Amino acid sequence: MSTSGEHGYPDTGHTRTHLPGGDPYGGAPRRTPRSSSRSLITVVGVVVLLIAAIAFANRDNSPSPNTPAKSPNQPAAAPTAASGHTPVPTKQNGIPTHFPHTKQGAESAAANYAVALVSADILKPARRSEIVKEVFVADQQAALTDKFNKAYSKQFLSNIGLDQNGDSAAGNTYVSRTAPLGTKPTAYSASAATVEVWCTGVFGTAGEDSTNPVTSDWFTMTLELRWENDDWKAAGFSQKDGPAPIPGDGKASSADQMAKAVEEYGGFTYAR
Rank of each mutant, 00 (worst) to 15 (best):
M1Y: 13
S4C: 13
Y9S: 14
Y9W: 13
P10G: 14
H14P: 14
H14Q: 15
R16Y: 09
R16Q: 13
T17K: 11
P20L: 09
G22S: 07
D23H: 04
R31Q: 14
R31M: 14
T32E: 12
S35G: 03
L40C: 11
T42K: 08
V43Q: 07
V44F: 01
I51C: 13
F56E: 13
N58V: 11
N61F: 01
S62T: 14
S64H: 03
T67P: 08
K70H: 04
P75R: 08
T80L: 09
A81V: 11
A82E: 08
S83I: 06
N93W: 06
G94C: 03
G94T: 05
P96Y: 07
P96M: 09
P96W: 04
H98W: 00
F99V: 12
E107A: 10
E107L: 08
E107P: 08
S108R: 07
A116P: 12
L117R: 08
L117K: 05
S119K: 08
A120S: 15
R128G: 02
I131M: 08
V132Q: 09
V132S: 01
K133L: 00
V135E: 05
V135S: 03
V137S: 14
Q141P: 08
A143F: 02
A151G: 09
A151D: 09
K154W: 05
N159L: 15
N159Y: 14
N165K: 05
G166C: 01
A169C: 03
G171L: 09
T173M: 04
S176Q: 06
G182R: 04
K184G: 02
K184W: 04
T186D: 02
S189H: 01
S191G: 10
A192R: 00
A192V: 06
A193G: 06
T194P: 10
T200H: 03
T200Q: 11
G201H: 05
T205G: 00
G207S: 04
G207Q: 01
G207I: 08
D209R: 06
T211E: 01
T220A: 05
L223W: 00
E224L: 02
D230A: 13
D231Q: 07
W232M: 01
A234K: 03
A234F: 02
F237T: 14
S238T: 04
Q239C: 10
K240A: 13
I246D: 15
G248D: 04
D249I: 09
G250F: 03
K251C: 15
M258H: 08
M258C: 12
A259D: 04
A261Q: 07
E264Y: 06
G267R: 07
G267D: 07
G267Q: 01
F268N: 10
R272T: 09
